[in-house]
Amino acid sequence: MRMGRPVIPAGDRKNTRFSDRKRVDKEVCGMRSRDSNRDQDEQAGMEQLVSTLVHGFRNPLSSIKMGLTTLQARAAATEADRRILDVSLREVAHLERMLKDLEEAFRSSEPRLIRTGLNAPVRQALGRAAPMFREKGVILEADLADSLPNADLDTGKVESLFLKLFLNALEASGPGCRVAVRTRPDPSGKILIAEVEDDGRGMPPGILERATEPFFSTGNGKPGLGLTAAERIAKLHGGTIEIVSEPGCGTTVTLWIPVRG
């Protein structure tokens, strides 16, 4: 005689379903906890690696820079020597920016916030970028609103953010192109908005969607960390960036930072 399935009373079936649901919920919570711990371990490992690399390269770079600067200052240096030294110092500066991008993209550090205006760090970044724009023949313009509300900002990090956006636009622009930065409040006065716009070569969709991805490069010899670091700095301020681009028409990066306070 074939045995049928045992009959489970309705109340017991309800308790069984409840018990199964609790078991599944517990397993899901455990998986999430393990994933979170693994992510934290990976982040800590990456931060330690970045810290070691940055420290290991920054010290010898400082010595190289000091030596080159000393040689450059000597009156006996020929014109050919000076050109070589100028190129060498530019390459050292490029390596220093790469290390800073690496540090800001991966190392966690709480921003040192002060209540201040957005335009001041933007102007600082403009001053640092201007010589490189002049050298390449790219026009750098600014339209900074006078009536911006103050916000909680780490001015050093925000200056670094804008410098990265300027240099990214410069890299995509040829002689005679224009790069413009604009600042303004949103109508509510609760958000600061800044735009960095260029009329350079632009990006196709496949590159645009990966623009802030760490180490993504278009084969131009750059490490692909500038926009990654810029986005991280924006997030440290509770903000975000959006990139709009079209091949042959240029790129616009928009930054939103809440005023808070």
Rank of each mutant, 00 (worst) to 15 (best):
243 I>Q: 04
222 K>P: 01
7 V>N: 03
190 K>F: 04
147 S>A: 15
156 G>D: 13
139 I>P: 01
143 D>E: 07
179 V>M: 14
62 S>E: 15
68 L>H: 13
182 R>T: 00
166 F>T: 00
161 L>T: 03
179 V>Y: 09
169 A>G: 01
216 F>T: 07
200 G>H: 12
3 M>A: 10
148 L>T: 09
101 D>F: 01
167 L>F: 08
139 I>Y: 09
95 L>D: 08
10 A>S: 15
105 A>T: 04
57 F>V: 03
250 G>S: 02
110 E>A: 10
258 P>Q: 04
162 F>R: 07
128 R>I: 00
21 R>S: 02
170 L>D: 07
234 A>G: 04
8 I>W: 12
15 N>F: 14
27 E>G: 09
3 M>W: 04
197 E>G: 00
210 R>Q: 05
178 R>T: 09
66 M>V: 11
79 E>T: 05
184 R>P: 02
214 P>Y: 12
38 R>G: 02
115 R>D: 01
193 I>M: 06
6 P>C: 08
84 I>Y: 14
45 G>M: 12
16 T>P: 00
184 R>I: 00
53 L>T: 11
168 N>G: 05
106 F>E: 11
151 A>C: 05
153 L>E: 11
236 L>C: 02
2 R>D: 02
61 L>P: 10
37 N>W: 08
214 P>A: 12
87 V>D: 12
214 P>E: 03
218 T>E: 12
222 K>Y: 06
253 V>N: 11
4 G>S: 14
113 L>E: 05
73 A>N: 13
173 S>K: 01
145 A>L: 10
61 L>S: 03
46 M>K: 04
219 G>D: 14
23 R>L: 15
235 K>C: 00
176 G>Y: 14
212 T>W: 04
240 T>R: 07
103 E>I: 05
11 G>M: 12
198 D>E: 15
156 G>Q: 01
49 L>Q: 06
235 K>I: 11
28 V>H: 04
206 G>S: 00
201 R>S: 10
132 M>A: 14
260 R>H: 14
119 N>G: 09
259 V>M: 13
20 D>V: 08
98 M>K: 09
191 I>T: 10
109 S>L: 12
55 H>F: 13
182 R>E: 03
222 K>I: 06
31 M>E: 14
237 H>C: 02
137 G>H: 04
97 R>P: 02
107 R>G: 02
227 L>K: 10
171 E>G: 05
154 D>R: 13
34 R>I: 13
240 T>I: 05
194 A>C: 03
28 V>I: 12
172 A>K: 08
163 L>R: 02
192 L>H: 00
239 G>C: 07
154 D>T: 15
4 G>C: 10
180 A>V: 09
218 T>W: 01
58 R>L: 07
168 N>K: 02
143 D>W: 08
148 L>G: 07
8 I>H: 10
65 K>L: 12
88 S>K: 01
105 A>H: 06
178 R>M: 07
133 F>H: 09
114 I>Q: 13
167 L>D: 00
57 F>T: 06
57 F>H: 13
239 G>E: 06
65 K>N: 15
118 L>M: 11
58 R>V: 05
219 G>F: 06
185 P>C: 09
93 A>P: 04
60 P>T: 08
241 I>P: 01
129 A>E: 06
254 T>A: 06
64 I>E: 03
246 E>L: 05
151 A>I: 15
34 R>K: 06
112 R>Y: 08
211 A>W: 06
171 E>M: 09
86 D>R: 15
127 G>E: 13
36 S>W: 01
253 V>P: 00
8 I>Y: 04
107 R>H: 11
